[in-house]
Amino acid sequence: MPSLPLAAPQIQTFGGFHIRRRRLFSPTTGKTLIIPLDHAITMGPAGGLENPRTVIEAAVGGKADAVMLRPGLVHSLAVPGAERLGVIMALTGRLATGVDHVLLNTVEYAAAHAADAVCGEFKFGSPGDLENARVIAALAERAHELGLPVLVTVYSRPEAVRQLGAGAYAHACRIAEEIGADFIKTSLPDDEDIIRQCVESTSVPIVLAGGPPDASTELTDFLGRAVRLGIGGAAIGRRAWAADKPVEAVRDLVTAVHGDRFDD
């Protein structure tokens, strides 16, 4: 008996999922530069986050590919040119204390607010990592039912690195993929072997968060080298909107991720 066509994967590949995903990644390079501005519920409206619209303006002016924010800040997208930005909505979070995230908004709410993708976060090695992973797995299932790509943010806690060594970074990325990530946001050290291992251990794009922990390493140099090793882009918040010249900072990051295609 001939097998039946797999309708669900076809819908995901050619329907809303594909349309939304292509708004997040450059059709020219296949990479992405995301400007997150979801930090204020933890760090407060300070350090460049006082006015979310100015962050959106910097993302537009610097030609970022996407922004990540929370559903309540959708009004900040009423900026000329923001219609070309991909929109990722962070649905998990924490306040000023603690480590682990909880689910704050639903996938349905994000979809109703024109999200192109949704994001959930967990820390590998934290006390609540298993429960957070379960929450994100359920979030990913629902998002895929609605045709929404899923970004999973995962950070390897020092406890995990002490226990597992350098392999903790690739382990964390693999967990993110296996619970439903279509792309992964993580922080990695400036170590080619670790970056290469993470890329080779997953089949979805990895975007780097925040830059190298070593302040002596130039962020744009680090990103350029990581992209050449197969990294799929970057998600940089503080080092963009807290810069003295945010538009120029975003443009420099875009060039580091995509090469010289925006040097016009």
Rank of each mutant, 00 (worst) to 15 (best):
L6Q: 12
A7K: 12
A8V: 05
I11K: 12
Q12T: 12
T13G: 09
G15Y: 09
G16S: 15
G16Q: 14
R20G: 06
R21L: 14
R21T: 05
S26W: 04
T28P: 00
T29V: 09
I34E: 01
I35K: 03
P36Y: 09
D38Y: 12
H39S: 04
A40E: 11
A40S: 15
A46S: 12
G47V: 14
G47D: 10
P52E: 03
E57L: 02
G61P: 04
A64R: 07
A66M: 11
H75P: 11
P80H: 04
A82E: 03
R84S: 14
R84Q: 11
I88F: 13
L91W: 04
L95D: 09
A96E: 10
G98H: 03
V99N: 04
V99F: 07
H101S: 10
L103G: 02
N105M: 09
V107I: 09
A110P: 06
H113M: 14
H113T: 13
A114H: 15
A114N: 15
D116H: 14
A117H: 08
F122H: 01
K123H: 13
K123L: 10
G125H: 06
G128A: 12
D129C: 12
L130N: 11
N132L: 06
N132I: 07
I136Q: 08
A138M: 05
L139Q: 13
E145G: 04
E145D: 14
L146I: 09
L146W: 10
G147Y: 07
P149F: 07
L151S: 11
V152G: 03
Y155V: 13
S156G: 05
R157A: 09
R157H: 13
E159L: 05
Q163M: 11
Q163P: 00
A166K: 12
Y169P: 02
A170F: 06
A170D: 06
A170T: 08
A172Q: 10
A176E: 10
A176H: 11
G180A: 11
A181R: 09
F183D: 00
L188D: 10
D190F: 14
D190M: 06
D193Y: 03
I194H: 01
I194W: 01
I195D: 04
R196T: 05
R196W: 02
A209T: 00
G210C: 02
P212E: 03
S216H: 09
R225T: 14
R228F: 00
G230F: 07
A234E: 07
I236N: 10
A242V: 02
A243G: 05
A243K: 08
L253N: 00
V254K: 03
G259P: 13
D260A: 13
R261E: 14
F262M: 13
